[in-house]
């Protein structure tokens, strides 16, 4: 008998200390997540956590189940986790870029079939 698959995890970064992620994108993504029936985690700023070497980054990197991170450039996000001594695994992690992508496409990546229809994004 096969083991049940661990639930997918979602991490949203608000990039609260800078204006490099378009406000309308990060607001629409957060609103879309908030309106969906999913559990998810939110952090004010991955950069700030990485500089503090926040142990929660290691927990996120090690945790069970596929992880999708809504933040910025994948190269930067991977570097931040490494800086915090919490390198992301090669498999099971997707990073979507709120600096460059549109909110509907990001929500599709994050929620897939869980995305409610007629949401605010």
């Amino acid at each position: 008998m096969s083991q049940p698959q661990p639930a997918p995890r979602i991490l949203y970064c608000r990039c609260a200390y800078a204006q490099v992620v378009p406000a309308e994108v990060k607001d629409a993504v957060l609103d879309g997540l908030a309106r969906a029936e999913v559990a998810f985690e939110m952090v004010p700023d991955l950069c700030e956590m990485a500089a503090r070497r926040d142990p929660h980054l290691a927990e996120l990197a090690r945790g069970d189940g596929p992880l999708t991170i809504a933040a910025c450039w994948p190269r930067a996000v991977e570097g931040l986790f490494s800086l915090a001594d919490a390198p992301l695994p090669r498999a099971g992690v997707r990073i979507v870029n709120m600096r460059t992508d549109a909110a509907p496409a990001i929500l599709d990546e994050l929620l897939g079939a869980d995305r409610p229809t007629g949401d605010a994004s």
């Binding site: 639930a7 908030a34 999913v38 559990a39 998810f40 985690e41 939110m42 004010p44 929660h56």
Partner: peptide, 8 residues
Amino acid sequence: SVVRAGAG
């Protein structure tokens, strides 16, 4: 930091 819980 915030966790939305209860729906999963």
